[in-house]
């Protein structure tokens, strides 16, 4: 009969090897990566939000805005029964956190679509 109980020594040894390999993987990080990590750490300590990668959002933000505007226009044209309203309730709805998140998602999707097209091309 096969003993299915785990050998604690074997398991500890296996875990130790895994841990050592993971430690090694960190030791092999590039100088550039380490420099970037030090930079973002200092930015965090100074409360700065700047970074290079998020710059791309600034580039694609306007494109996303155009797509969002096109979607709104399409809905508007497709649903003429909707009348403009100036009520405060509508303003609250438009500026609510959920709507802002929706707009961010639309911009995000627009950016992703551009990325897909670029990669496909």
């Amino acid at each position: 009969m096969v003993d299915e109980k785990k050998d604690p020594f074997e398991e500890k040894d296996f875990e130790a090897k895994l841990k050592q390999s993971l430690d090694n993987s960190v030791d092999e990080l590039s100088q550039q990566t380490l420099a970037n990590l030090n930079e973002i750490r200092q930015q965090a300590l100074n409360g700065k939000q700047a970074n290079a990668s998020k710059f791309q959002w600034a580039l694609w933000g306007p494109a996303g805005g155009l797509v969002a505007a096109a979607v709104v226009a399409a809905v508007w044209v497709g649903n003429p029964a909707v009348q403009p309203s100036n009520s405060i309730d509508d303003l609250e709805l438009l500026t609510s956190e959920e709507d802002l998140e929706l707009m961010e998602d639309i911009e995000f999707v627009a950016w992703l679509m551009e990325q897909e097209i670029d990669h496909a091309g």
């Binding site: 970037n36 990590l37 930015q43 965090a44 409360g47 970074n51 990668s53």
Partner: peptide
């Protein structure tokens, strides 16, 4: 992805500090 990982770590650092 290196860049995504860097962004995630930065967000985590900023979140902790803030």
């Amino acid at each position: 992805c290196e860049q995504d990982a860097m962004d995630i770590v930065q967000d985590a650092m900023m979140g902790l500090v803030k």
